Amino acid sequence: MTARKATCRCGQLTVVCTGDPVRISVCHCLACQKRSGSAFAAQARYPDAQVCLTGEFREWSHTGDSGSRATFRFCGTCGATISFSNESLPGTTAIPIGAFADPAFPPPLFSVYEDRKHNWVAILGDAIDRYR
């Protein structure tokens, strides 16, 4: 079984995910743009039972544009978000793809809030959406 390790920037907070993600996506909502500091956020969702988080973290919850509440877990030292859960997708934990620091990580095939997507962004998986 595949195991992937993600870490915060300083390395004290880690998450190990086993198996394959159930969804790899990008989000263009304004909250994700702010959280990621980029034009969009990319994340891989795993069943909760396949995620093991170790280290000290802080949590912050926020109600997003969809009206559902998300809880973010981040390192209190370096501030990097290492995981989050959303009540609209119960039983799953999302891990920011960049935290894996793996250029071979599978690409996203699902894209949401495209009405807020920057006009210079093209997500190649948009044409091959296996999650619908």
Rank of each mutant, 00 (worst) to 15 (best):
F100I: 09
H118Y: 10
G79W: 05
L53C: 09
Q33Y: 02
A104P: 00
Q50H: 13
T54Q: 14
C78W: 02
V22F: 01
R4D: 01
I97T: 09
R35H: 08
A49N: 09
S88G: 15
E56K: 11
P47F: 04
V51N: 01
F40Q: 03
A49D: 09
V112D: 05
S85E: 14
P106H: 12
R73K: 11
K117S: 08
Y131H: 14
E59D: 07
E114T: 15
T93L: 05
C29E: 04
A104Y: 04
A39S: 12
R132K: 15
S36P: 03
A94V: 14
T54A: 13
G79F: 09
R130L: 14
F74L: 07
R35T: 08
I24F: 00
P103G: 10
C17H: 02
I82M: 12
H118I: 04
L13D: 03
S85N: 04
T63A: 01
S83I: 05
V112P: 01
A70T: 14
L109I: 08
R9I: 13
C8G: 08
P108M: 08
V51F: 06
A44I: 07
R35W: 10
E56H: 09
G125H: 07
L13P: 00
A49T: 11
R73I: 02
C78T: 05
G67S: 07
A49W: 03
P106L: 13
E56M: 04
C17R: 02
G76T: 11
S38C: 07
E87K: 05
G64H: 04
D129H: 08
V121S: 00
V22G: 04
I24K: 07
S61R: 11
R23T: 06
F40P: 04
V121W: 00
G125K: 03
R9C: 07
I82Q: 02
H28V: 13
A44M: 06
A80E: 08
P47R: 12
C75T: 03
D65P: 00
A99S: 15
A42D: 02
G98I: 11
V16M: 02
A122F: 08
C32I: 10
Y46C: 01
K117V: 11
V16D: 03
T81C: 06
A94I: 13
C75D: 06
P90V: 12
R45M: 14
K117H: 10
Q33F: 07
V22S: 09
R132H: 12
T14Y: 00
G79S: 04
K117T: 11
S83Q: 06
H118C: 12
P107Y: 03
I82G: 01
E87S: 13
I82V: 15
D65G: 10
A44K: 06
G37Q: 05
T14H: 02
F40T: 06
C10I: 13
F40V: 12
C10W: 05
W120Q: 08
T7V: 11
N119T: 12
E56Y: 00
W60C: 11
G19Y: 02
